[in-house]
Design a protein around this nucleic acid. Structure first.
Length: 452
RNA sequence: GCGCCCAUCGUCUAUCGGUUAGGACACGUGGUUUUCAUCCACGUAAGCGGGGUUCGACUCCCCGUGGGCGCGCCA
């Protein structure tokens, strides 16, 4: 029997990471077994289902690479089959009409739960059993003629030939009802596997209040799809060895339901961030450059006509410092913008006190302007010689130079950074920074007032 | 209230009766960089409690405790 699984979201809003993780597990399972991965849009809630939400599901899946093998099934189009199934159950005495609760709304169709206990094998949780008395009859078609979730879900899964129902833990209780429905409908009961929930630090279902909760949130924050995919796959599943950063192919090869952990898991943003960095550095330079460029463009830092080769050198210099493409604008904006802002605290600490660097920066400017070759080695040698000659610690000059050319205290190694920036920019920035040195508020009495 | 499920470092997890309980993130320390970060090394840190079963339990069973889910003419 070839495997057929499905992802069956309700398009009623943004796609939650818990839902998309269910999709990921289904997809991985299908690919591992060479089966089919299907999509069913459960859009029967006309009040809340919107075309935008449907598109949102499709976009999220496409972004993560969750390819489907057949055209999506829209549950709303299956209504006739649902009602027919219910009528059939009534004819055979497995269901009955009743004005449940005497609402006066008319008669609904209720499924008659069998008198015997219900049992099923869950591929994650093991053998599950429920006493007959604990499962009540339930409505399958409302008095207005519309089918209820349980009925539609089961009828559609039968119709779509679903062999394994892999879904969230919150459906375990429903499964007892569903199993009874399959039997009453004369269908083969599929295998079930219930995935643990994603919870917050308090153990409650993870929601928007706990931080990024939707696929779109992570995408906007700059996370890579392969990183989110990998991270989510590892929430409740592990390959069995000590690998953590995995390619999709590796996950497909290793995925089994037996290795799914039954207890709930918390999202650890820090680890996701780390994982994103791991996946980022695995992307070829060309792709990283394109990603960084997009972020710089989005923030108005990159303008058409700028030097692409220069961008590539910057990205290379930033290398492992960047964990998200969106780090570029904040961490490397100064490479592209000559009018970058100086961190006031660093100006104070590195350019004014304890040592006024005005003369020092002037000396560096002169020395570097005269350097025959603007290379890392030459720059380093020159800086150190100059510092020593002036009776200073090279570290002072290093820090001062960094602040002078970038305005920041963190960044690539100083000499690499200088070379990438190039002589022209460096000299201009040194000149500009000189004007920030101790001549105003930080100046000693008597030496203030210089304006040259 | 009743029913079902879950329970290993702060977090994600390995372990399927015998291990100094392993790895990763985070954290700490040290080294490298006369520079922040990176990187490297090392380190701190766990079997919810109580009973059993067994020569031997994190692992199996029971009772608690804690948490989650369900008990809709929502999905």
């Amino acid at each position: 029997m070839s495997v057929r699984v499905r992802f069956a979201p309700s398009p009623t809003g943004q796609v939650h990471i818990g839902n998309i993780r269910a999709a990921i597990f289904n997809w991985l399972f299908a690919r591992h077994h060479g089966g089919k991965f299907l999509l069913r849009i459960e859009d029967t809630d006309r009040e809340r289902s919107t075309p935008e939400a449907v598109q949102g599901v499709l976009d999220a899946m496409a972004w993560l690479g969750l390819s489907t093998d057949e055209a999506p099934v829209y549950q709303s189009s299956m209504r006739a089959a649902h009602v027919a199934a219910a009528e059939d159950l009534v004819r055979r005495g497995a269901a009955y009409r009743e004005d449940k609760g005497g609402t006066g709304k008319g008669e609904a169709i209720l499924f008659r739960m069998p008198a015997e206990d219900v049992e099923f094998q869950d591929d994650v949780k093991g053998q599950l059993k429920k006493a007959a008395k604990d499962v009540k009859d339930f409505v399958i078609v409302r008095s207005d003629g519309s089918p209820v979730f349980h009925l539609g879900n089961v009828v559609d899964d039968i119709q779509m030939g679903v062999t394994h129902v892999i879904r969230g833990d919150d459906h375990v209780e429903n499964t007892f009802r569903h199993v009874a429905l399959y039997r009453a409908l004369g269908a083969t009961v599929p295998k079930f596997a219930h995935l643990p929930m994603i919870v917050n630090a308090q153990g409650k279902p993870y929601s928007k209040r706990d931080g990024a909760a939707y696929v779109g949130d992570f995408r906007e924050k700059g996370f890579l799809p392969e990183a989110l995919f990998n991270y989510l796959a590892l929430l409740g599943w592990s390959p069995g060895d000590e690998r953590e950063v995995l390619t999709v192919d590796e996950m497909v090869a290793a995925f089994t339901l037996e290795r799914v952990h039954p207890s709930p898991a918390q999202v650890d943003q820090a680890k996701l961030m780390w994982m994103n960095g791991e996946h980022l550095r695995r992307r070829p330079l060309g792709e990283r450059v394109a990603g960084c460029k997009a972020d710089l463009q989005a923030n108005g830092i990159w303008r058409d006509g700028m030097d692409e080769a220069y961008l590539a050198r910057v990205v290379d210099a930033m290398a492992e410092r960047v964990k998200l493409y969106t780090d570029m604008s904040v961490q490397a904006g100064f490479f592209f913008n000559d009018d970058f802002a100086y961190d006031p605290k660093l100006v104070e600490k590195r350019l004014r006190k304890p040592v006024d660097m005005e003369a020092g920066l002037g000396a560096l400017h002169a020395a570097w302007a005269a350097l025959p070759e603007f290379s890392e080695a030459a720059l380093e040698e020159s800086l150190k010689a100059l510092a020593v000659a002036r009776g200073a610690n090279p570290a002072e000059f290093i820090h001062a130079s960094r602040v002078a050319v970038s305005g920041m205290g963190v960044g690539p190694g100083l000499y690499v950074m200088l070379v990438v920036l190039g002589r022209e920019r460096v000299l201009a920035r040194l000149g500009r920074a000189k004007n920030l040195c101790a001549r105003t508020d930080a100046a000693a009495p008597g030496s203030a007032g210089g304006n040259g």
